[in-house]
Amino acid sequence: MKDIIKKINAALFAFIVFYLGFIGFRAFSSGYPFSLICYNCKSCDSVCVIGIDPQGFMAASIVDDPDIYVYVTNYRIYAGEAEKLDPDMIIQTHDRKLSISKALRDGTVTRDSEVITYKMKARHAANICIECAACERVCPVKLPILDVVKGLKNKESGAGK
């Protein structure tokens, strides 16, 4: 193998190891290191009536970023309000999934229409979470998901505490 290709390969393999370490570092810096334990089993997803995927909150704390998109597949919201919150929020309408800004531009919905969400930012999902703790009850490793939800509520955009 040529020298340069060996170096590229070695560098990219080192990147992979660094990537794993970086994830661990971000989880610690978010203040929720236990989020690394999450099984990604989606047991929590099956019990949320609003259709929030609570594993998304764990993912947000692993990467220490409240702006990642998580599934919220059964929350009704007015289109104008959704656009004000986040123009890139994904909604479901007429069997299509598209961003709210696109839906308003196309005329698929009006500002007074009620839409069902599909994906939204983790901090917005945390704000609509009712904190019923059904997700915590079914978690196989008993993660304190509500601690993460409370931390994400009203969080300003951008990573970090």
Binding site: F28, P33, L146
Partner: peptide, 10 residues
């Protein structure tokens, strides 16, 4: 100990 004192709890 770092995890215990470093984590956010409410």
């Amino acid at each position: 100990l770092i995890i215990h004192f470093g984590r956010k709890a409410y």
